[in-house]
Amino acid sequence: MKSIAVSGKGGAGKTALTAMMTKVIIGKGTPGKILLVDADPAGGLAPALGLSVEITIGNIREEIIRSVRKGGRKTKAQIAGAVDYKIMEALAELESFSFLAVGRTETDGCFCPVNDLLRDAIEILLKDFDLVIIDGEAGLEQINRKVMRSVDSLIIVTDPSHRGKRTAAGIKDIVETQRLMKSDQMALVMNRIKGAVGLGEEAAREVGLKLAGCIPEDENITRYDSMGKPLLELPEDSPGVVAVQGILENLRIN
């Protein structure tokens, strides 16, 4: 199983990149099973893929905590058996890919062991896929706690803004010093450039990451977004999609 996680500042284009990577990979007819994980609690990936989510890992987590609170030893044994059922139920299986949403957590408190319990079950599920793509958040916490602790490729997306680059540098730092996420390769994607291609190289140097590629400002993305149309349906020759194809080649993912 190969895995890619996408991280970066809020609004940098993580979800757009994830959706476009999916489009390119599916379009190539790459054999194998693809799992997309929306690790952003706000859940932006589903609409970008044209899906609506019924059950999230967050829902399952709530259910577990609720049933455990009710107590009783018998319940424990039953919950232990039920975790896999629920995860399987939460998995949306489509023709060309499957989808799992981490979702929101409503219960206060950390309940770290619940995450362990869920991750145990998710790990078994992940093994059955050939490629897992995770649309994450800047903190990497959701991915780490709820999905997996190491990925093959970690893609950090930024836009040309100063804050975007600072966040990118911060993520790189977290990975290197706190080992919150292990990855074989880490690379920067510069999104939403208008003309000046040099920006990407410059930002990569600044942040200290290898540049995977740049994605231009793409009017189709804006249009699809305003119409609520899934980005998965972008035209194949849309500048963003073409750029993402190059990025996947650079990273030797496809």
Partner: peptide, 14 residues
Amino acid sequence: EVCDDIRDIIILRR
């Protein structure tokens, strides 16, 4: 207490 219970569940499940 809830977490302790969940730890038990992890053991049971494994």
